[in-house]
Simulated scan of single mutants.
Amino acid sequence: MNILKVLSAGGVLALSVGAANAATYYATDVIASDPGFCDTTRDGGACSKPSRYNPDNAKGAPDGRFYSLGLTTYNDDGSVDDEGSITLGFGTTFPTQQDVSVWEVTYNISPTSRHREAVDVYAIMGGVETLLGRLTNLNGGGKVLAGMGFEYIKLVDATLNEFGRSGTTSFDGFDVDSVSVAPVPLPAAGLMLLAGLGGFGVMRRRQKKA
Rank of each mutant, 00 (worst) to 15 (best):
T40S: 12
P35N: 12
A118P: 07
T112C: 14
G70F: 01
M125Q: 09
T106M: 05
S8Q: 01
G190P: 12
S101F: 10
D177M: 05
Q97V: 13
N57T: 11
L71S: 10
V128R: 00
V105T: 15
G126C: 03
L194Y: 13
R205C: 10
E129I: 06
I124S: 10
L193P: 13
L155H: 03
T168Y: 08
Y122W: 12
T168G: 08
L160T: 07
A118K: 02
N21H: 06
F66C: 08
I153M: 15
Y26D: 14
N54Y: 03
G147I: 10
V119N: 12
I109V: 11
D39A: 04
N139P: 07
G78N: 01
V144D: 14
L197P: 03
K154G: 05
F171C: 11
E151T: 14
D39W: 06
G190S: 13
D82Q: 13
G45M: 01
V17T: 10
P187N: 15
D39T: 04
D172W: 02
C38T: 06
A9W: 03
G149R: 02
V156K: 00
V128F: 12
Y25M: 15
F94Y: 10
A22R: 04
A195Q: 05
S113N: 11
G36L: 08
V30H: 00
V179I: 15
P55A: 13
F174S: 12
G78S: 03
Y25P: 08
G140V: 14
G127A: 08
D63A: 07
G126T: 10
I124R: 02
T130S: 14
G141H: 07
S79H: 04
P50G: 15
K143S: 15
T112V: 15
P55R: 00
R65I: 06
P111Q: 04
L186T: 15
V179N: 09
A22G: 10
V100T: 15
S101Y: 11
I124P: 06
S79R: 01
R205G: 13
V80Y: 00
S110N: 07
V12L: 08
V179Y: 08
V100D: 10
T41A: 13
N108Y: 09
F200N: 07
L132E: 01
D177P: 02
D157R: 04
G173H: 00
W103E: 09
T24Y: 01
G141E: 14
D99T: 14
G45Y: 08
A182Q: 03
R165D: 12
D29K: 00
G164P: 07
G190F: 06
E104H: 06
Y122D: 05
V119M: 05
G199D: 10
A146S: 15
S110T: 13
M1N: 08
G201W: 00
N108E: 12
A20W: 05
T92K: 00
P183T: 08
V156Q: 00
N139A: 09
D120Q: 05
V179R: 00
V17Q: 06
T106F: 08
D172T: 14
S166A: 09
G127I: 13
